[in-house]
């Protein structure tokens, strides 16, 4: 546990409060890394990723301390618990060789709907970056924006992968903790023109994009977490931007009727957590109105950790 029990920090156990505490503890982790004297953006991202590969954040909960009525509260305390690498894979591959460092050699992965294996040391976590980078080589944009950008990791990795330097990078994020982290990370790299903006998917304000003529806007594992977007979500964006290309990497293949025996765990989780239900529908409506052209739509292209199938979408304002 990271700090003393403070009853005033007790908050009802709901998604809002859970994310608030999660972001607080992520920010605390970043500050500890920076306090060690780290000043290189890539290294700080690497150290955070390395820590996250080996640790899971556990938030402490308790019964209502006043009423004893069975309601769950978050105490505000948390612990980073060290995990063995890929423990689930040991159950799936009991005969899988293990490296001297204790890592199973292979992990389970679903690619194109097919069960495959991949080296455990290979990650599909950032596959969005080379795809977006390749698009920036094919078309000229005057702004990059990520919706639900968290601490801006994908934007920063895009920049570090060699994406254009002479355009602003907008990190649009709801949670203050994420924006604070992104600002702190951006301050490490004077070459990036980064702007953190407050953005709520449920009440979207795209005015920060108004000055730009050719926007590349993307999301990565962000829209899926909003059960229902406002019906005018895309209209608001399209009304703001003279030209915009949207690129999405989201866990929403089920909206296209895709089912797979290999993603049962994901489907259970989706039903429990109320994943997004309407983004594909909104996109189809905008297409029918002639406002966008869907250039690419491929459900469940690949999986990131724990069988999370990623659907890739590219569209352009007509």
């Amino acid at each position: 546990m990271t700090d003393a029990l403070r009853p005033e920090t007790f908050l009802p156990h709901n998604e809002q409060n859970m994310f608030q505490y999660i972001w607080e503890h992520r920010l605390d982790l970043l500050n500890r890394i920076l306090a060690n004297g780290e000043t290189n953006l890539a290294r700080v991202l690497g150290l955070m990723a390395e820590f996250n590969r080996h640790h899971r954040l556990i938030l402490e909960t308790c019964d209502d301390p006043r009423e004893g009525n069975g309601a769950q509260f978050l105490t505000g305390r948390a612990a980073w618990v060290r995990e063995t690498p890929d423990p689930g894979n040991r159950a799936m591959f009991p005969d899988c060789p293990v490296t001297p460092e204790g890592v199973p050699l292979y992990s389970w992965a679903v690619v194109g709907g097919h069960p495959t294996i991949r080296p455990s040391h290979a990650s599909y976590d950032h596959l969005a970056v080379p795809v977006i980078l390749a698009l920036t080589r094919q078309r000229r944009f005057d702004a990059f924006a990520e919706l639900g950008s968290g601490f801006g990791e994908k934007l920063f990795r895009l920049y570090l992968a060699g994406a254009p330097r002479d355009v602003p990078y907008y990190g649009a994020e709801l949670w203050e903790g994420g924006r604070l982290m992104a600002d702190a990370l951006a301050s490490l790299e004077p070459g990036i023109d980064f702007h953190g903006v407050t953005f709520d998917m449920k009440a979207p304000d795209f005015s920060f994009l108004a000055p730009h003529k050719q926007v590349l806007l993307f999301s990565n594992a962000a829209i899926y977490a909003v059960p229902d977007l406002p019906p005018d979500f895309l209209d608001l964006l399209l009304d703001t931007c003279p030209a915009v290309t949207g690129v999405h990497f989201e866990f929403i293949g089920y909206q296209l009727g895709v089912t797979s025996a290999y993603v049962e765990e994901f489907n259970r989780r989706r039903e429990e957590r109320a994943y997004n239900r309407d983004f594909i529908g909104l996109l189809r409506q905008a297409e029918e109105k002639g406002r966008v052209t869907v250039e690419y739509l491929q459900p469940d292209l690949y999986c990131v950790s724990s069988a999370q199938p990623v659907t890739v979408i590219v569209w352009r304002k007509t």
């Binding site: 690619v111 495959t116 991949r118 080296p119 290979a122 990650s123 596959l127």
Partner: peptide, 17 residues
């Protein structure tokens, strides 16, 4: 992988292994 034919995402190049 380990002598078995399989597929990977095009950009999942294993350069990070």
């Amino acid at each position: 992988e380990s002598g078995n034919r399989t597929i990977r995402p095009f950009y999942g190049t294993y350069d990070d292994v």
